[in-house]
Design a protein around this nucleic acid. Structure first.
Length: 425
DNA sequence: AACTAGGCT
DNA sequence: GTATAAGCCTAGTTG
């Protein structure tokens, strides 16, 4: 029994008798089945979108060249910085630097969006060229004779998460103007449905239990909206009076906390002053004192032992955590905070997949219909099932994911059924 | 191959 | 004085 498991059992986590090595062995055949199954895409729909965006891209290119008065390669950050900051003399104040010069990343360009009409065009150009070159062009070339994409899952990550490559189906767009359209081109076979199941705030629930943090645990047990609850805490107002904007801020703080985010980082993410960000983080730590202790405990134990571990015993060594270069040490401190949380979440999803795989086989056998897992995206599963049994499969999926392990708070899964990946979400 | 950028959880 | 949010994969440019 590891330290973390001992701590966890005291907090009412019932840990299944299995190690992370065994989980990783048992997940392999499941992943091979998923790779073989593949997911169907609507190739002609993607090609149409490609054409549409490509023609807009050409327009943008012309407009940008006209607006800047130079025919340069918009895809070259070097040329871009040259045009914006040397030729057009746009202000570089407050912009990040890269190794080679001023950053032209979207997050930086947004800061000077109103100082020149070309910037908005450049940002749109970036968005479209990303979608075209990474998704719309390559994906149709990778389908099999049934229009299905087959990814390859990998397991060699430092936290135990899975990876997906050639193609990566774990970073298919969902946000932005075209996210929904792209996800709508991931479709079920005729007579079948796509089922998407997501763990809701799994990492926050895990850290609440690992910490343990009394207030956060109570909030999850009551079924509160955790981001609103956090907003109420950091703004010192009643839960009912939390505004959307306050909730958005609180969500970012909750999110950042599992990454060991600093006030500077939060200020960048929210576009607020470091002083304001610092105030929120301070209020957060005062409200959730268990989380504060967790962070200190993880850093201390990593300094002492040289590693941290997940609930099922996967170790991550952090040899530089005592480095005298403090940004090196701080980087590993953040890993010490994040790895047990991210790694445990990953183990829980893998356990659920191992169990669900058996159940789907049973349902298929019993009904004579298809039910198969297709994708895993860190806290989400995508399944394809015959329409007749889709509801049954969805129920079994939710039940399995929510009950594969008992932790000190309820685990919640949101689930949807549709003809496409977007519709199922 | 290094660097920059940007897509996802 | 330097850096500042965890973990991935892919594409385009540059030298």
């Amino acid at each position: 029994m590891t330290d973390l498991q001992d701590k966890a059992e005291k907090m009412g986590i019932k840990i299944p008798e299995i190690t992370f090595e065994e989980i990783n062995e048992q997940i392999k055949p499941v992943l091979r089945k998923m790779e073989q199954a593949g997911i169907r895409i609507n190739v002609s729909y993607i090609n149409e979108l490609d054409q549409k965006l490509s023609s807009r891209l050409k327009e943008l290119e012309t407009e940008i060249h006209k607006s800047t008065g130079t025919e340069f390669n918009i895809g070259s950050p070097i040329q871009m910085a040259d045009i914006l900051f040397d030729k057009l003399k746009l202000s570089t104040e407050g912009l990040k630097k890269t190794k080679s010069g001023i950053s032209t990343a979207a997050s930086e360009l947004k800061k000077i969006e109103d100082t020149h009409p070309a910037i908005k065009l450049i940002l749109e150009h970036r968005e479209l060229s990303k979608l075209i070159s990474t998704y719309l062009r390559p994906l149709p070339l990778l389908v099999d004779e049934d229009d299905r994409l087959h990814t390859t899952y990998g397991m060699e990550t430092s936290t135990g998460r899975l990876t997906s490559s050639e193609p990566n189906l774990q970073n298919i767009p969902i946000r932005g103007t075209y996210g929904a359209e792209i996800r709508n081109s991931f479709i079920a076979n005729p007579g079948m449905k796509i089922i998407a199941a997501d763990y809701s705030q799994i990492e926050l629930r895990i850290v609440a239990c690992l910490a343990p943090d009394k207030l956060m645990i109570e909030s999850f047990q009551r079924g509160d909206d955790i981001h609103a609850k956090t907003a109420a805490q950091i703004f010192h107002i009643p839960l009912e009076e939390v505004t959307k904007e306050q909730r958005r801020v609180a969500k970012a703080v909750n999110f950042g906390i599992v990454y060991g985010q600093t006030s500077y980082g939060l200020s960048q993410a929210l576009d607020i002053s470091p002083a304001e960000a610092s105030k929120y983080i301070k209020e957060y730590f005062e409200s959730y004192s268990g989380i504060t202790k967790y962070i200190n405990y993880m850093i201390d134990s990593a300094r002492k032992d040289g590693y941290v571990e997940t609930l099922f015993g996967m170790k991550r060594y952090l040899p530089e955590i005592n480095s005298s270069k403090h940004y090196i040490a701080e980087s590993e401190e953040r890993m010490a905070i994040n790895t047990p949380v991210q790694g445990t979440a990953s183990e829980i999803l893998k356990l659920a997949m191992i169990e669900l795989d058996k159940q789907l086989d049973e349902i298929s056998k019993k009904s004579g219909k298809t039910a198969r897992m297709l994708l895993t995206v860190h806290d989400e599963l995508v399944i394809e099932a015959s329409s007749e049994i889709a509801q049954e499969v969805a129920t079994a999926t939710k039940d399995t994911m929510e009950n594969v392990i008992k932790i000190c708070v309820p685990i919640e899964v949101s689930i949807g059924i549709g003809d496409t990946w977007d519709e199922a979400k």
